[in-house]
């Protein structure tokens, strides 16, 4: 009897140790909804078989913070954005709610972003929000990674939480996809590294005491324990570039927009987790 239980424990340990990383077998469930945190890689990815949400690379404690909307500190900023949604700003005397009945009308949008518009331009969520502010409301554009913008991105993105990421990469999007892909694989900076060196070649491995993730952006904006605020996609790209001692591209610039399209498409098949919690 005793021997059996010891054998079972040992067997359990062996199984656990064959996992690539800590949370690979954990299940992300928020308010009773189960999330897909690993899926077959989309066909366009040549070097990766399985895509993983960044959530699976985190410790139990960090994972738990995303599993309850009260424990998730992002929701303080979501609530602030709900107020902003109804706050009149600008010369036209309008609020978001003057045109958009409620944040729920944006259900599904986050899963498709970024996308190419009718004019053939690549557009991102912050640009849609600032477009409304400057053109319809007569208000000042928000700073790309400022508190108001990241909160509104979280509120809008939340409406698509649980939707499968489905970013278009063909047709009009193809040239942007190709440009983003090239950037992803181009070594830059003093450390001469590309995105792929960490997030494709070494995900699951330790970088000092951290688990490297695949660098998926399906949960952005994300609340990071490191800086205790919501972090935008381009803000995170910028941070990565600084880490490899490169001069970061501009937030909202053509390079990061194309890179966002490419990186977003690497999560096609995972679910939108906005607003997520990471370390």
């Amino acid at each position: 009897m005793k021997l059996n239980s010891i054998t079972a424990i040992v067997a359990g340990l062996v199984v656990a140790s064959t996992s690539a990383f800590a949370g690979e077998d954990s299940v992300l469930s928020i308010d009773g909804q189960e999330f897909i945190t690993q899926a077959a890689a989309p066909a366009h990815m040549e070097n990766v078989d399985t895509i993983y949400s960044g959530w699976v690379f985190r410790t139990d404690e960090t994972q738990a913070l995303e599993m309850d909307d009260f424990d998730n500190p992002s929701f303080v900023f979501v609530e602030q954005a709900e107020e902003l949604f109804e706050t009149v700003d600008g010369s036209a005397g309008k609020a978001c709610v003057s045109c958009h009945e409620s944040p729920e009308v944006f259900a599904g949008l986050r899963a498709k972003m970024p996308r190419v518009n009718d004019a053939g331009e690549l557009e991102t969520l912050p640009e849609l929000i600032n477009g409304c502010r400057t053109e319809r409301m007569g208000a000042e554009a928000w700073k790309w990674s400022g508190g108001q913008m990241s909160g509104m991105l979280a509120l809008v993105g939340l409406q698509s939480r649980g939707d499968i990421v489905d970013v278009a990469i063909d047709g009009a999007a193809a040239p942007f996809f190709e440009k983003g892909k090239e950037l992803y694989y181009t070594r830059v900076g003093q450390l001469d590294m590309s995105c792929a060196n960490c997030h494709e070649d070494n995900y699951g491995n330790m970088i000092r005491a951290d688990h490297l993730s695949q660098g998926q952006i399906n949960g952005f904006p994300t609340y990071r324990l490191k800086n205790t605020k919501l972090n935008t996609i381009h803000g995170r790209f910028k941070g990565c570039m600084k880490n490899i001692r490169a001069t970061p591209f501009k937030e909202g610039g053509e390079e990061f927009k194309a890179l966002e399209l490419y990186v977003a498409s690497r999560a096609n098949g995972l679910m939108v987790e906005t607003p997520s919690v990471r370390n």
């Binding site: 009260f70 929701f75 303080v76 609530e79 602030q80 508190g147």
Partner: peptide, 8 residues
């Protein structure tokens, strides 16, 4: 600035 309580 921006202090907002939440309770459940």
């Amino acid at each position: 600035k921006g202090v907002k309580p939440r309770v459940k």
